[in-house]
Design a protein around this nucleic acid. Structure first.
Lengths: 208, 208
DNA sequence: TTCACTTACGAGACTCGTAACGATC
DNA sequence: GATCGTTACGAGTCTCGTAAGTGAA
């Protein structure tokens, strides 16, 4: 079944004439005629009494309401997706870790708001764990967090790597770790550290 | 939009795999792939994340429920019409004038019930006017009445001539009208007659 | 290498508009 | 004769399965 056949059928049913239907669909009468015929042969049923004035048969009568709903559903789906693509989604909720909110997001958001002025933006700064939870709960549309191997195996969300970032250690000038150009993890574990509290990606990273 | 494209989309969305979808639809994977691509290009939106495991995009998520309903609607329409054609209409209500009920219907009904044993028949004997009224009210599916020119111009019902029937005049052997081979209408009007009461086609015929 | 999706290709089917045809008024 | 639906025809498009290509694990 092709949608145009259904539209042709609807047009004929509603105008009561193949010619008028053809005008409405922007095609030739012969095309409308053939489209309706295709439909009829697919359903194996005559849909119209082709007398002087076109009238629906019983089968046509059965098809009419369903054809209407199918046409509407498709149109609605088309429109919604077109709106989605055009960025007319009414609201976009973003959660991101504090560092991203502070340094990365401002310029991006400015550009985004310029490109899609219709979209209401909502931005929240959250720790990685909490951000993932609200994403899973559907409270936000996207989150920007530190990479976490458990994410990539999760089946119900889509993960995309934005950029790589070196993790740096801040210490006193006479600290023993200054001997390293690149501090190994096991060396790091031998000294007391100041890190984020539980629920933050960095904390999880160091802990592991 | 073609229905098969929508079915392919649904199959992929529900099985999570193009291959499984192809098996379900009874076609090649490449066909499923192309059908989904057609849909995507028509909607101008990507419907699936084609990573290791197939996941719906936001657009795909929007389409899914509508696609389901369209598919169901079409299937239901198909089934209903097929049932209709197979004569599985649960009930057929017929109204006919008394003469037809007495002489014509019995053999026809017997044949019909043999051909379509699933159909519940309801037959009512009514005068022409009353029969037309119950037809218009949707209380019966078809009526068999005497021809009436006002019927053929009526827009909301379909009229089909079944057969022609001579109208005969019954009179005493010594009645003046016996002189005619065919009694003219204006001669008939000059004598008192016994006819049906109001609301019967014959009465209307004579009156006019 | 395997597995899964995409793409290239050629055969066949489909669809369209034009135009001829048929029926009805 | 005018109007309206159907049918024939040829050009162009689409769709399919097969088979080769591509990318990830």
């Amino acid at each position: 079944m092709r949608l145009e056949q259904l539209e042709a059928f609807l047009a004929v049913a509603e105008t009561g004439s193949f010619q008028a239907a053809a005008r409405r669909c922007g095609v030739t009468q012969s095309t409308v005629s053939r489209q309706v015929q295709s439909l009829e042969s697919e359903l194996d049923a005559v849909l119209f009494h082709r007398t002087t004035q076109i009238k629906l048969t019983v089968a046509g009568d059965v098809l009419l309401p369903r054809a209407r709903r199918i046409s509407q559903d498709w149109q609605q789906a088309t429109n919604e997706i077109a709106d989605l693509m055009a960025g007319k989604q009414p609201e976009l909720c973003v959660a991101a870790i504090h560092s991203v909110c502070a340094y990365l997001l401002p310029t991006v958001l400015q550009q985004f708001c310029q490109d899609y002025p219709q979209v209401q933006m909502r931005v929240t700064a959250l720790g990685s764990d909490r951000a993932l939870k609200v994403l899973r709960d559907g409270l936000v549309d996207i989150v920007i967090v530190m990479d976490n191997p458990r994410l990539t195996i999760s089946t119900d969300m889509h993960v995309q790597t934005l950029y790589e970032e070196p993790v740096e250690v801040l210490m006193a000038a006479d600290h023993p770790l200054t001997q390293f150009e690149i501090v190994p993890w096991d060396a790091l574990t031998r000294y007391p550290q100041v890190v984020f509290k539980d629920g933050y990606g960095m904390q999880r990273l160091v802990q592991e």
